[in-house]
Each structure stands twice: as C-alpha cells, then as structure tokens.
C-alpha cells in the first residue's frame, strides 16, 4: 500500500531554532526519525517538548529562527498545517480542544477523506466509515455515545486522550507525534492508549512520543530515547536511558551540559 520501507528517513530535523515571544525555546535541535522506529523525547518542564510538537504540526505563532525540518523529503516548515496532516503527519494534542457543535465523527470522516484525497484514494462512504470507526472505538474502549457529541465536548481528560488515539488509528498517519498523551491518564487508560499506539506500529510508519515520565514507555517500548533540555537534544540512547532518567531525574544532564 505504501512505498515506504523500513529504515527510510521520514523526518529529519537539523539545527531547528525557534523563539516564542522573543524567548528562545528550541536552540539548534537535531533529530532523525526513520520508518519502523519509535522514539521517545523526554525532558523536564519547559524544555521545549511541546513547542517541538506544535512547530512540527504547523502552529503559526512560533518564530522559526533557523534550521530545517524535512518530512518525506519535503520542506515541512513551508507547508501549512493541513497539508502536513494530509501528508500523514499526526499530532496528538496534550490538551485536545473542545469544539461544541462540530460533530466528533464527522470531523473524523472529513479528516480521513482529506488524507485519502491527498493519497489519491477514493473517499470512504458513510457505511464503510462507520464500520471502521466502530472497530477502532472498540479497540480504544470509547463509548459509542461519544461519537454523536461535539468534538471532545464534555469529555473527561482520559476520554479526550483516547479520542486523540482513536483519530490516529483511523487516520493511520506515517508519523504520529504524541504530545504528553499519558498525562492525566489512569493506569487502565494508559494500557488502552498503549495498545492503540502499538496497533499502529509498522515498518512503514514511525511514532514519536513526547513525554515527561517514563511510565508510558512501559506500554510503548521505544527504540530510541532522547533527552531534550534547554531546547536541544542533550543525549540519545535506548530504553535504558529512560530508566536512568526515571532514577536520576534531569539535573545531572544539565550539570553535564554546563560542564561540557
């Protein structure tokens, strides 16, 4: 179905430098994500994790001061947010917005068809679509009643996060960036979310988990772990780095960086 093979570069960030209201948030960040990989980006509060997610998804009120980001070989930063989505980049929001009056399921259908048009695939009809969504809802253990509500309208924190993952599993993005998806989830919801994300993992896709805590990584085991401090990746490693961070916190890295 896709012409992406394991190991192809999906996302390549070089020297990304970003200001927010005159303050430097990302400061020369490098990151390469290949097909088939799962990355975890960890870091203390204020390190720039959410900024990175939002910039990659195309939020316009950030000032990009330098560097580049290429997605599937294209200049990602030159694309408007909706084009990035249609090309298969998905952002799972840390704080999914509530949109009363915009029906949940129709947003999902519109989003899926926008993506399919981009892929030059026929749009799904309502029947097909509902079957697909019902299936995924079961996977995410979302109450069908939520389908007919406004987007995230009156959802609990956990329901919102599960709804994000539901959208992701329906849209089947090439690259999913999940911003603090674990925050506000109890242990059962965490399992469900982990299950949802794992179901998406394939050789022609990649997942980037942005998280403060390592507990999500018990459920979604990453291939690569990066530590984001002061707007750049200070250290990269495998799963064991996350466990070390869990044990030692982030301060030792900062000290190390200052000494270097």
């Amino acid at each position: 179905m896709s012409n992406i093979s394991k190991g192809d570069i999906l996302l390549e960030i070089r020297g990304l430098t970003v200001d927010v209201q005159g303050r430097r948030i990302l400061d020369g960040l490098d990151l390469t994500v290949r097909a088939g990989e799962t990355h975890a980006i960890m870091g203390p509060n204020g390190a720039g994790k959410s900024t990175l997610s939002q910039v990659l998804a195309g939020r316009s009120d950030y000032e990009i001061r330098g560097g580049s980001a290429r997605f599937l070989g294209e200049d990602l930063l030159a694309l408007p947010a909706e084009e990035r989505a249609r090309r298969g980049l998905f952002l799972g929001f840390q704080y999914p917005v509530e949109i009363p009056g915009v029906n949940n399921v129709y947003l999902l259908k519109a989003a899926l068809n926008a993506r399919r048009r981009q892929q030059q695939l026929p749009e799904v009809d309502a029947f097909e679509f509902l079957a697909l969504v019902r299936d995924k809802m079961k996977l995410m253990q979302i109450d069908e009643a939520l389908l007919s509500r406004g987007v995230n309208e009156g959802f609990s924190g956990g329901e919102k996060k599960r709804n994000e993952i539901l959208q992701m599993t329906v849209l089947e993005p090439v690259l999913a960036i999940l911003d603090e998806t674990d925050s506000g989830l109890d242990i059962d919801a965490l399992k469900v979310v982990g299950h949802g994300v794992n179901s998406l993992r394939r050789d022609d896709r990649a997942v980037v988990l942005v998280t403060h805590y390592q507990r999500l990584l018990d459920h979604i085991v990453p291939d690569h772990v990066h530590v984001l401090v002061g707007g750049r990746i200070l250290r990269s490693g495998d799963r064991s780095l996350a466990l070390e961070l869990e044990r030692r916190g982030y301060d030792w890295l900062r000290e190390g960086a200052a000494a270097a």
């Binding site: 998804a57 195309g58 939020r59 316009s60 408007p80 947010a81 909706e82 990035r84 989505a85 249609r86 998905f90 952002l91 929001f93 999914p96 917005v97 949109i99 009363p100 009056g101 915009v102 947003l107 999902l108 519109a110 989003a111 926008a114 993506r115 981009q118 406004g150 987007v151 959208q167 849209l171």
Partner: peptide, 23 residues
C-alpha cells in the same frame, strides 16, 4: 489549528467553526 492538523483547509475550518458557533 486543531482542525488544520486534522487536514481541513482554513476556509472550511473557519466556516465550520462559524456554523458550530451558531449550532
């Protein structure tokens, strides 16, 4: 922005939100 990240174009998203506002 949320709607844009779901692939809707700006005009549609704006119209949709305007309509939802009246919903």
């Amino acid at each position: 922005f949320y709607l844009l990240t779901r692939g809707l174009d700006r005009d549609t998203a704006r119209a949709l939100l305007t309509y939802a506002f009246l919903g």
